[in-house]
Computed example of a mutant assay.
Amino acid sequence: MVNTRAIVTSLDEHELDILQQSYRLATSPSKHRELSINCKDLLDPELAMPFLQKVGAFWETDSMTATVSLFAKRYAYLTIAAGLYAMSRYNKGLDLSLANSSLESYLQGEAWLPKALLVNQETSSPSAGRRDEWRDEIVQQMFAGNLAPVWAALSKMAGVSQAVLWENTAIYVYWLYENQFPDGASKEERQQIEADYRYLVQEAPPHLFAQRSNPLKKFDSPKRTTAVSDTPIRVRKTCCLYYLAADEPDDYCPTCPKLKHG
């Protein structure tokens, strides 16, 4: 059936460069094959667990729950950052389905910096008057079609709550739309960014995330100053378990609910 909601497009050189340099999009496989994986293989414990054990060495923790949570932060970013930026800034949709994506590893010193490589790098753009429907397709593919099954699989493998993994995802959506995407945008582009952000966090129906409720709305809360932060912050509802891999005991993230924010 012909998709009347969208037309086939492609990224121009400038757009591709931005997504590569700022939003973790790769255009060729990494040489570090032992630290790279087809995204669909994250659903298979026999393939995913050895991979997670390898990347867990970067955080020097014996806790698989902490490893999975810290991995989820990186995976969430490389899955949503380029896709949402392309959607909101360029009106172009990337195919971030599991079958079309691989996680490619890059190292910067001792830091592990994964990127997303897409087999099919064509994009789609909305047909006239069909942007809302097109946006739903892009969001559903990214969240319900990719992150939801990966979070469910990793949660089962490592015993980490899916709520932690979804909040790890949500904090990046907030940060990207509030701090990154508006940079250098025109007035019209800012209006589109604000409209997409409002839709994602307040209006998007749960089925786009394959959840009973919208997880981006669930974890949103007003920023406020606290006893441990003079700068307004959005205090998390779940702990990301970073402290289990920190160099110092009880070293929590500034937004951690384990801190006495008051």
Rank of each mutant, 00 (worst) to 15 (best):
K40F: 10
S105F: 00
I7T: 15
N91A: 08
S101H: 02
W112Q: 08
N100P: 09
D12W: 11
P215G: 11
C39W: 05
P45H: 12
A153W: 03
V235L: 06
T225M: 10
A86Q: 09
A48K: 10
S28C: 08
F209S: 04
L107A: 09
P222S: 09
E137A: 13
G56T: 10
I233F: 03
L216C: 05
S155H: 00
P206A: 00
S69T: 02
Q140M: 06
V235I: 13
S213A: 11
R74P: 04
A245V: 12
D41F: 02
P126T: 14
L43F: 01
I7V: 15
S30T: 15
R236C: 08
Q180F: 14
K217T: 13
A204T: 02
E133S: 12
D132F: 04
T169I: 02
T79V: 14
M87A: 13
S124C: 07
F219I: 04
E60N: 14
A81Y: 06
P205S: 06
A245G: 08
Q192N: 03
W112N: 12
E104S: 07
T169M: 00
E34A: 14
I7K: 12
S229L: 07
Q180Y: 09
Y197T: 01
I7E: 14
P254S: 14
A210C: 11
V235C: 13
V228E: 06
L16M: 03
A86W: 05
N146S: 15
Y106I: 01
M142Y: 03
E189K: 15
Q162G: 01
Y252T: 11
L176W: 04
L16D: 01
C253E: 09
L176D: 10
K218F: 04
R33Q: 12
K156D: 07
D230E: 09
A210M: 06
Y106S: 04
P249Y: 13
P149Q: 00
L94D: 09
L11F: 10
P215W: 03
G262Y: 06
K218T: 04
A128M: 05
S101M: 13
D12G: 08
P249C: 11
S213E: 13
N38M: 04
T9H: 10
Y75G: 10
R33W: 07
D250I: 03
A128K: 07
H207Y: 12
E194V: 07
D220I: 12
L98Q: 15
P182S: 12
V68S: 13
A76G: 14
D41Y: 05
N146K: 02
A185G: 03
D95T: 11
L19Q: 10
L19D: 09
Y252L: 13
Y174M: 00
K258C: 12
M1A: 13
A185N: 01
S36R: 04
D220Q: 09
G56W: 06
S97D: 04
M87P: 01
P149V: 01
S28T: 09
A111T: 09
M157F: 10
W166T: 00
T123P: 02
V8W: 09
K237Q: 15
D183Y: 05
T67Y: 05
Y199C: 10
N91M: 08
W166M: 02
D12R: 05
G109R: 11
D12M: 10
S101G: 06
P45Y: 11
Q192S: 01
V55Q: 05
K187G: 01
Q191H: 03
D247P: 14
S125W: 06
N214F: 04
S127W: 02
V68W: 01
A245I: 11
